[in-house]
Every structure is written in structure tokens, then in C-alpha cells.
Design a protein around this nucleic acid. Structure first.
Lengths: 112, 112
DNA sequence: TCCATATTTCTAGAATACTCGAATTAAAGG
DNA sequence: CCTTTAATTCGAGTATTCTAGAAATATGGA
């Protein structure tokens, strides 16, 4: 996964309403939920929700398809797993690597 | 971890320069790096870097402490692990669950 | 066809974020 | 005290994001 995609997905999730929507879709399971159901769950104005759903879609985190009058949305679990993979590989050190050196202030005259 | 903290950390990482800085600090290891070292690595104007470091700090992803004239920065691995934990618990569903029975006519990549 | 429902697009104002030059603070050492 | 180096804060300009009312589009049904 490229850094750009990672930033895009992080940005998509870095907004309270969008994170709520995504969590709701994850809870909804693979069957997903309609825009109307989501709107009730998160209590947002239609235009506002539409705006945020588009952002989630653009980031690849949500899939939509029309189903009669409704539009069904589903979380793209794979995109999420990719993001978690990126963070784990690029932004973690080992796992539970405790800081050994402790805090600053002790190193003096060391390491120019 | 609360949703608010998760959003704050996601937002902190959802910016190319900040993500680069954080990745650099992770690579630097528990010893961290000075602001000047970071600045060279990411090629940012001093004021710009200072702004973004403050954001990372505010989100709890970076720790700083003065060391003589320099300021040493370290990645807070624990904060990252918490974030990954939050995403894993709240935003994932099992593994590659592609259960059909869906209503949409569109079949997902899963050919049976 | 006309109507109701479901959702999007348009639009514009308000809020937030980003960048960076210049001035400022902080520390170490003449 | 003065200078140099390291980094921050201030301030202003630019850009992006968020919100939501109103109008438009899409679908199914009487």
C-alpha cells in the first residue's frame, strides 16, 4: 500500500461522523445498510451524509450499489485490513517494544 | 480507547508530512531524533515542521523533551498500538468475510 | 402520468488546516 | 554581555473541509 492511499484512508476515518458511519457499516455486517438506515443511526442531514459517504467511497473504504430506490452501502473490510497492515508495517516497531532508555535529560556531552 | 482519541490520532497521521515524520521517528527507534534531524529528513521549513510536531504531540503520538539546545522527539509506540487496537476491534469484521445472501444484484469479485 | 420516497448535486457561507517569513525564546560558550 | 545554534511562536495569506438548505435525479407504484 502506498503512502498516499494510507493518508487518504486515514483522512477518511479522521472525522467523527465518517468514523461513526464506517463503524455502523462494520456492525451491519456484510449485508451492509441503506443510506437511510445510516442516516437514522448517525442523525445527519441528508446532504451532509451524502458528502461524507462520497469521501468514504473515494478512499475505497465503502462500496455502494443501487437497490431499487435505495442505495446499499457496505464496508470494504479489505481496505481496512490493508490500512492496518500499512500502519503495522510502517509505523510500529516490533510489538510492545518498550522504551528502554527512559526519558531524556540523562544524556549529556554524549553524541554530538 | 475513546472514539475522540482515535479520531485525533487518525487526523494526526492523515497528513503526508506528519505521517513521514512519524515514520521517520519509528525508524529512528526508541532513541528518537532531534527536530533538526527530522527537518533534514523531511525537508520542511522550520515553522512548518514545528506546527506539525505540535499536532503529533497533541494527539499523543510523539513525545518531546529538551536536551540542551536540541529537542528530542520520540514516537509513542503505545499510542500507535492503541490506535491499531481500536481499529481492529471497532472497524474490522472477522477476516475476509464475503458472505453472500446479499440483496444487490452485483456480485462481488467472489466467483463461486 | 403523477406522486411519494430515497438520495444526490448545487451552492455558498463558516470553520479549520496548512505554509512560511519574521520575530522570539532558550541554551551553551566565549 | 554577546554570539551562535536550535527550535518555537506570531501573523497573515491561501486552501481545504464541513454543513446544510434547496433543487434535482432516480425509482416504484397507483
Amino acid at each position: 500500500m502506498e503512502m498516499n492511499s494510507a493518508v487518504a484512508r486515514l483522512a477518511a476515518l479522521a472525522q467523527p461522523l465518517r468514523l461513526s458511519v464506517f463503524r455502523y457499516l462494520v456492525e451491519a455486517g456484510p449485508g451492509g445498510a441503506s443510506v437511510g438506515e445510516i442516516r437514522e443511526a448517525v442523525a445527519a442531514a441528508p446532504a451532509t451524509l451524502s458528502f461524507h459517504l462520497k469521501e468514504l467511497q473515494a478512499a475505497g473504504l465503502v462500496d455502494t450499489c443501487r437497490e431499487g430506490r435505495r442505495i446499499r452501502c457496505r464496508a470494504r473490510y479489505q481496505a481496512m485490513n490493508e490500512l492496518i497492515g500499512y500502519l503495522t508495517e510502517n509505523c510500529c516497531r516490533g510489538e510492545g517494544a518498550a522504551a528502554p532508555g527512559g526519558e531524556c535529560a540523562i544524556t549529556e556531552g554524549e553524541a554530538s
